[in-house]
Amino acid sequence: MQLRKVTAASAAVLALALTATACGSEDKDDAAGSGGGGKITIGIKIDQPGLGLKTPDGKFAGFDVDVATYIAKELGFDAKNIEFVETKSADRETAIERGDVKFIAATYSINDERLQKVDFAGPYLLAHQDVLVRADDNTIKSPEDLNNKKLCSVTGSTSAKNVKEKLAPKAQLQNYGGYSECLTGLENKAIDALTTDDSILAGYAAQEAHKGKFKLAGFKMTNENYGIGLKKGDADLKKKVDAALTKMVSDGSWDKAVEANFGPANYKNEKAPEIGNVVK
């Protein structure tokens, strides 16, 4: 008898779970269906302040988001008809190839390996690998000064390894799961410098909680040309996106977006890159 009660209970739970999931998928279908052909799906990052961040109220903010919204507008889509989805670094090529997203604006640097799989419009931003230090720390003036300093980056990132192998072999390397832990360490002086693309660093330093505490050192250790990733061979879309980016720069929206997203971090951005001009 006892057993039968348990079985009944678990059956009920299972049935509930099934109905719940069924509801969920139905809702989604409805949303997609009612939009008809009027929606556009864009891949962004949702965890990088200043570039692509999902805010607690469910909206998206950042430079990549501003650029993507502008392009979508030029392609004929209202802001409310844009659906942003997260594309993690490792998933970006697959998402484009499968057609999950129309295009990707997610700190996507143009390089030869990626050009074999996808096409790029742009570039729309020229970033460099840089280091973030405490605002009152004046001991790090060149990459070589990082010797005997404590350098932080995230697991799986190549930026810190580049520094250690090429520029400052005596630097101590600490890897964390996310940049936030590095920033805590930087604030506590357990870490002396945090390294990755300057645009990402500027985004973190410009966050409300970090304003005025950190500064960019301004080393241009690499060139990262952020482009808009598109399906390979879609020349028509590439032309339209390029035109949208050109217009964004010429009407001043580009400068406004840079100022709004990276402004407070002493970030000396490069001029808006020319379309098709990939700086090696």
Partner: peptide, 9 residues
């Protein structure tokens, strides 16, 4: 790491 090492050393 953050509490014991970074903050309390």
């Amino acid at each position: 790491s953050l509490g014991l090492f970074q903050t309390l050393q």
